[in-house]
Structure formats: structure tokens, C-alpha cells
Design a protein around this nucleic acid. Structure first.
Length: 223
DNA sequence: GCGACAG
DNA sequence: ATCTTGTCGC
């Protein structure tokens, strides 16, 4: 699918777009409980920040093997501003998504969804634009407070921002730093954590983002 | 006012 | 994100 979107030039414009999209986020669904296909998205940057490569890799959800993928190269669409991260990477990621042969049942983003100062992290934004179920798995926090989860794999603690629960701090590997899981669009938090654990049988990060990471790095090196 | 701040 | 050495552990 080809997605039409207007990309901001200024911070004020970007904030206005987030305000407009935020009410369109669907937080009702449990999301796909037994998806057959799950896609991972990631972006790699050149040393001088002049170029980037965006990759989308679709995995068979059961075997975690690659069944489709796409990569695009280009330039960062926006400066890096915490909270406006999506405007930097989404144009390239959408271009990559457009080249996919199959439509994934779930998109796993490298970053946050609801766990965002205005509740519109990259995962939510991508969900609204594509209409597909999305979730975010971040390596480091952006907002919120939490208690360290127990040491075993599967242990978690709520990620809160004031009174709201915006995500979950989830341990995907015994004794290893946890990840930050939050819903994006048409996805429930319990399910997002279940899917994250299913995607991390061995490593800290989901196999989807690991595959996407290696692919965009390779593409960047060649460009 | 002073930090913190997805990738 | 990216630049980096050695080091600890399976």
C-alpha cells in the first residue's frame, strides 16, 4: 500500500500533526494473538548523519525465519528531537513497507508507542498511517517511572507516567537489562508482551528488530 | 531554573 | 544512532 502523508519542517508543525493523529490511535483491540507474520523495522545512519537506510523484515511468526524484506536508503527527514522521532524515520520506513510483497499482521517498532510524552510514539504513528496493528519495543526509556522487574525471563513491572500505565518494563533474558514494551495501534499491552517474549527465545531484543537491524546496516554500508 | 530526553 | 578495547561468560 502506498501511504500519503505530509511531513513537517518545523517543530511546531510536527507537534500539530501529533495532536491531530493522537485521537486516531485505536487502543481497544487485543491485537493478533496468533499472527502468522510479524514484521520488524529499523533504521541505520551514516557517521555524518547525511544518509540512512531503513529496513522492514517479515518473519514467519512460528519459525522466526525471514519470508520477506525490503530496504530503502535516503536522508533523515527531520532532526533528532526526543518526542518527534517518528518524523525522522517514518518516511523511509513507509517507503520500505511499500516494497513488501506480503502485508504483515503485526509491525514491531524499534522505539516506543504509547510510552511517549504525548502518547504518540513512532509505533502509534505508524499504526495510524498504515492501519495495521503495531507495538513498540524500546531499549531505553523515554518517559515514565518503574521498578526493576524480577531477574527471571518474563518478569515485568508497569511503566507509569503519573496515573497512567503507558507500557511495561519486560525482562526478555535472565539477568539482562529489560526492554520497554508499549502498544502502538490496535494492540493490547498483555498481547504486546506475549508477542515480545515469543520473539525473544534467545536474545534480549525481538528477532524482528535484530533482523531488520542487520539488514539496514548492510544496505547502508553498500550505499 | 536545572536536568532528562526513543534512535 | 554512531565511535570504540578489553573482558567476562557460555
Amino acid at each position: 500500500m502506498k501511504i500519503e502523508a505530509h511531513w513537517p519542517t518545523t517543530v511546531a508543525e510536527a507537534l500539530a500533526i501529533q495532536d491531530r493523529l493522537r485521537p486516531l490511535v485505536d487502543l481497544t483491540g487485543p491485537g493478533p494473538t496468533e499472527p502468522e507474520t510479524i514484521a520488524g523495522l529499523d533504521v541505520a545512519y551514516a557517521d555524518d548523519d547525511s544518509r540512512l537506510a531503513a529496513a522492514v523484515v517479515v518473519l514467519d511468526a512460528r519459525t522466526l525465519t525471514v519470508i520477506d524484506s525490503a530496504v530503502t536508503t535516503g536522508r533523515p527527514a527531520f532532526d533528532y528531537v526526543p518526542g518527534l522521532f517518528a518524523f525522522r524515520e517514518l518516511p523511509a520506513l513507509l517507503a520500505a513497507l511499500d516494497q513488501l510483497r506480503v502485508v504483515p499482521e503485526l509491525l514491531v517498532c524499534d522505539g516506543h508507542g504509547l510510552a511517549h510524552p504525548r502518547r504518540l510514539g513512532l509505533a502509534c504513528h505508524l499504526g495510524v498511517l498504515t492501519g495495521l496493528p503495531t507495538m513498540g519495543v524500546g531499549k531505553t526509556p523515554l518517559i515514565g517511572t518503574w521498578e526493576p522487574p524480577a531477574g527471571h525471563r518474563g518478569a515485568w513491572s508497569p511503566l507509569r507516567d503519573g496515573d497512567e500505565t503507558v507500557g511495561r518494563v519486560l525482562r526478555t533474558r535472565e539477568g539482562v537489562k529489560p526492554v520497554f514494551v508499549s502498544v502502538g495501534h490496535r494492540m493490547g499491552l498483555d498481547n504486546a508482551c506475549a508477542r515480545t517474549l515469543a520473539l525473544t527465545p534467545r536474545y534480549r531484543l525481538p528477532e524482528t528488530t535484530r533482523q531488520a537491524d542487520r539488514m539496514c546496516r548492510a544496505a547502508l554500508a553498500k550505499s
